[in-house]
Design a binder for these strands. Structure first.
Length: 300
DNA sequence: AACGGTATCAACCGCTTTTTT
DNA sequence: CAAAAAAGCGGTTGATACCGT
């Protein structure tokens, strides 16, 4: 047999919390704790609320040291970086920001940050098209530029391509050689020898072991390998952030993803390395004649 | 001042995962 | 081990504050 029913849904109050309800809940939890049972809590206090509602109210509003609004630039950066790497895992993102709740971050992202970044992207896009226009003039139409090219070329929106070496320094665990050895020694930060590099080139990188920014490349790599001239570029859509980067944000929810929770945590790698990611990381490489580029957004 | 559109955010809903019996 | 409830999580909604006309 299971447990007793949660609450009588017909008899619970809903909607905004009154100051009186807040103070009852707050003072009780501060004195007695939650007791590990939210469902029983409202009855003990004499609140006509669902336990779930009490939990939410406490976690998102009444809990001590909660910060509301006024997100700093640094917090923005962390949120952006993590969102673009792990997607809408708000609780994980919130865990990196002391005093912030997942609900707050989610709201902030949906209402402001996303727009802010889209604005930035538009600016970059404009700047990029201006530069292209000038180049076009200067080179007397030596290469074609049209709207289609631009839409298919997210890489152009971002400056500078770090070297493969730099990418490995950031994610040494992500790619192994044919002998299954990391290309970069974590402890010393020494990059792999040229021998290792050669063997890497001749073997397929395991993108599934990389942070999610690289997921999706695996499929491409397998399907397009040897495809010749086609440079990899995915105009992705991330909540309307088309071509925000060339990186597929993989939905890690267990539904249909086939990724176990163990696999998920393994693929995130070190969250701190994501938090500390640079402005734009681009990963560029050539494998058996196939050029691919990956970029993800980070901020500094 | 009145109105309509937009932005914000607390709270709810429904689903998945975890825990308990 | 299975069933059921609790806990946790992310998406969505609705009230209302704000802003421009």
């Amino acid at each position: 047999m299971g447990r007793a029913p949660c609450c009588d849904k017909a008899n619970v109050k809903r909607g905004p919390w009154s100051p009186d309800e807040d103070s009852k809940l707050k003072s009780y939890i501060e004195e007695h704790g939650t007791g590990g049972n939210w469902i029983a809590l409202p009855q003990k206090i004499g609140l006509k609320r669902c336990g779930k509602s009490c939990r939410l109210r406490w976690l998102n509003y009444l809990r001590p040291n909660i910060k509301h609004g006024g997100f700093s630039e640094e917090e923005d950066n962390i949120i952006c970086s993590l969102y673009l790497n792990i997607g809408s895992r708000w609780s994980i993102i919130a865990a990196q920001l002391p005093g912030r709740t997942d609900n707050d971050i989610k709201n902030y992202w949906n209402t402001r940050l996303k727009k802010k970044l889209m604005g930035k992207q538009r600016k970059e896009q404009q700047r990029s098209s201006t530069v292209k226009h000038e180049m076009k003039r200067e080179s007397h139409d030596s290469f074609m530029v049209n709207s289609h090219d631009q839409a298919m070329d997210p890489i152009l929106y971002w400056p500078e391509l770090p070297t493969l070496h730099e990418a490995y320094l950031q994610y040494p665990f992500a790619v192994s050689t044919a002998q299954d050895q990391p290309l970069c020694d974590n402890s010393t930060n020494n990059f792999a020898s040229s021998t290792s590099m050669n063997s890497m080139k001749s073997s397929s990188p395991d993108f599934s072991q990389m942070p999610n920014m690289f997921q999706g490349f695996n499929n491409y790599y397998q399907s397009e390998l040897g495809g010749g001239e086609m440079a990899y570029s995915t105009p992705q859509q991330v909540d309307g952030l088309e071509s925000f980067s060339g990186v597929e944000i993989v939905n890690l929810s267990s539904t249909g993803s086939g990724i176990s929770s163990v696999d998920q945590s393994a693929s995130w790698g070190d969250i701190n390395s994501l938090v500390n990611s640079p402005m734009v990381y681009q990963y560029e490489g050539t494998m058996q004649g196939c050029t691919f580029e990956a970029s993800y957004f980070g901020l500094q």
